[in-house]
Amino acid sequence: MGCYHSKKAKSPGYEDPSILSAETPFTVNEVEALHELFKKLSSSIIDDGFIHKEEFQLALFRNRNKRNLFADRVFDLFDLKRNGVIEFGEFVRSLGVFHPNTPTEDKITFAFKLYDLRQTGYIEREELKDMVVALLQESDLVLSDEVIEIIVHKTFSEADAKGDGRIDQEEWKEFVLKNPSLIKNMTLPYLKDITVAFPSFVLNSEVEDSE
């Protein structure tokens, strides 16, 4: 059971579902269902087996040209090899962070990387303000610069426990544990039902789940 592996030609970047399953919270069948989703996303503009930035934007916004600071950050974090595209293995490993069963600590770490725009190891006040401004630009909410400064200042004074003008990973963790709603978007309940959402994986399945 679960021992049959064919050598069917797969797209570049394809990885063995059993390996991906071992490294993530997904079962083999769930990885295969994710492959169905991946095939759909990675062929929406250029059918080459990789998710390009425009395809990612198209899936998120129904608009291939809609740039968004946060979508850019998510794309960059998913692109573990930093080669400008998301490969299947990167897709599965990164989505694993969003699985309901993934430890909160992993989600907190991912969110920190997301918000550490300049990748300095700290979330700085300027970065926080840049993100608030970016969020306002994509929403209908209009706030004066003075109000934005007050929001950023207040948040920073609560999160920057050491008061050194920057939020480190430890401070971020403490802050999120006090405000768990901050990482609500790091959990996708959908991932628990992925085999139901993409049942066609059954037709293409090479491995029978042993779980």
Binding site: L60, N68, F70, A71, L135, T155, S181
Partner: peptide
């Protein structure tokens, strides 16, 4: 809710760019 009482990170977390559930929409 008055905007000044908002937590900046809470505000940011509402971004559409961070809402990956859209990836699963058919």
């Amino acid at each position: 809710m008055a905007p000044v009482t908002m937590n900046a990170f809470e505000l940011i977390s509402t971004s559409q760019g961070l809402n990956l559930s859209s990836l699963f929409e058919k």
